[in-house]
């Protein structure tokens, strides 16, 4: 495997996002978003002011699950179509690099772009929050940032699969939007519906298992475990987490979610473009 080729492709992708200020705009967005959530999050109780990091993490988790997946899905959604339309895909295919090197280079470049904007955005806002509320739960906040980066990488991986599966941009966009809706909203609605239909008889274990099939719910539970404050969580993540569902297991599931679509992308790419 040629590391130089992977790094060259990754560098190009990262450089594109830095030059176009994509990384900076997203980072500023995350910073402002976090500060606003933290400051105005207490408005319902009648006062405004920065809350402690735990409460901020809980609020952010409920909203980040919408923003990061759509960012990642749109970031990677056009990646193959762009190369195909420019004619450069053919150049990559007939160059002495493997399909893996090509996909990994692209994936690494976009992952770093997304991770950098997440780290910068939440990092800067985290520093501001620490100066206002103290250093308690700093570790939890750092873990929240890592989880958020992982969530982005998972959806980036899914976006690669969508990008290779469909040729037309309109289809890619439609499936991207549907995937986002499915993972962030429809899946949990389905679970709630299942609870109602079965009148809660499906059991907590099966329910928990079904939850961890959705990477967004895994992200919620990971943050829930890391700050250990179920009271501040809303939605399905506030259900009781079974004891076997450890951080390691959830990380394992997340890594599978991050890897499987990428492996499927590789197989599909070979079938589609090297037939």
């Amino acid at each position: 495997m040629s590391t130089d080729a992977i790094l060259a492709i990754a560098h190009k992708e990262l450089s594109d996002r830095l030059k176009s200020r994509w990384v900076m705009v997203i980072a500023i967005g995350f910073t402002l978003f976090t500060l606003i959530i933290s400051y105005f999050g207490t408005i319902p109780s009648g006062v405004a002011g920065f809350r402690d990091l735990d409460a901020t993490i809980a609020s952010l988790t409920s909203l980040v699950i919408y923003f990061i997946p759509i960012l990642a899905l749109t970031l990677g959604g056009g990646i193959i179509a762009d190369e195909r339309d420019k004619g450069t895909l053919e150049l990559f295919l007939c160059s002495p690099i493997s399909v893996w090197e090509f996909i990994l280079g692209k994936f690494a470049g976009l992952s770093v772009s997304l991770a950098l904007s997440t780290l910068l955005g939440f990092g800067v806002s985290g520093i501001i929050l620490i100066t206002k509320t103290g250093t308690e739960s700093v570790a939890g906040y750092l873990i929240f940032i890592i989880h958020s980066i992982l969530l982005g990488i998972i959806f980036l991986s899914i976006s690669f699969f969508i990008s290779i599966l469909f040729d037309e941009r309109s289809r890619v966009i439609a499936v991207t939007v549907f995937s986002w809706l499915f993972f962030t909203l429809l899946y949990d609605l389905g679970l709630v519906g299942l609870l109602i239909v079965t009148k809660g008889s499906i059991g907590a274990d099966i329910f928990s298992l079904l939850m961890i099939l959705n990477p967004v719910d895994v992200y919620r539970i990971l943050n829930f475990i890391s700050i250990d404050q179920s009271a501040v969580f809303l939605g399905l993540a506030s259900v009781e987490v079974p004891s076997y569902m450890t951080t390691s297991i959830l990380w394992g599931i997340s890594l599978i979610w991050g890897t499987l679509p990428l492996v499927a992308s590789y197989i599909l790419f070979k079938r589609k473009y090297l037939k």
Binding site: G87, E90, P96
Partner: peptide, 17 residues
Amino acid sequence: KHFRKQIGYMPERVSFY
């Protein structure tokens, strides 16, 4: 992979970046 190191290919339609 080895053979492609010896090939230069100029496709008809490529607009680059």
